[in-house]
Amino acid sequence: MALQMTEKEEGSASDIILETRNIVKRFGGVVALAGVSIKIPRRWIVLLIGPNGSGKTTLVNVITGFLKPEEGKVIYEGRDITGVEPHIITRMGIVRTFQIPKPFINLTVLENLLAAYPPGPHENPYKAVSKRSWVKTEEEAVEKAFDILKALGMERAWDQKASELSGAELKLLEVGRALMSGAKLMILDEPAAGVNPTKAHEIFSVIRKLREERGITFLIIEHRIDIASQYVDYTYALHLGRLISQGPPQKVLNDKAVIESYIGG
């Protein structure tokens, strides 16, 4: 299956960061994914669409290691990561955000980011009394956290509690935490859900900016295709566990099969 590339952006289509090959996933007798193959080039923003129950979330769960496929492979940066534990996949640089934001609600924005810094000996509670055991890592983390806050446009909210943030800010906080944990490929589950159009555009602008400035690759599940399609490079459409269309967003959105899949439910 050849990718139909558009002459977009600087990312080269031959540098594939993530690839799934013929993923099959069944739940009992129900086939959730019937051989799905996608390719995500590095530094691209890829949109995954499809009506409810089409298998989008299942595919994400397979990629991030929460589910094991019956058949097929997940290749990340040339390595087979099929069936690897989720937290190891996270450490390899694939970070997902949740559809409903899961902030550390009683922590400040800055603390949320700092807590997302990759785990290490600086978090050992038995050595916590000795500041020397963690201060260096912490300084790096704080520097990085403020850089990310600036990139997200949230720098003024750094000392605010997560419980005081708006819906859109919480979505950005999720993205910020993923960046903090060293994400190379970020999988966002409905980043614009429940957010007003202006804010949704802001969120996608930030995503574009992060791609330009930090070279992050994005795989985005989003129902608000009208907004998302303006920002993405490539689109895959799923229906009943099968890939029914792919290509530049406008092409996919005008595809008869895609339109029918949404109308037919």
Binding site: N106, L107, N112, A115, E123, P125, V129, T137
Partner: peptide, 9 residues
């Protein structure tokens, strides 16, 4: 400390 913060997180 980072450890104390992690408890709360």
């Amino acid at each position: 400390s980072p450890a104390g913060r992690l408890f709360r997180a």
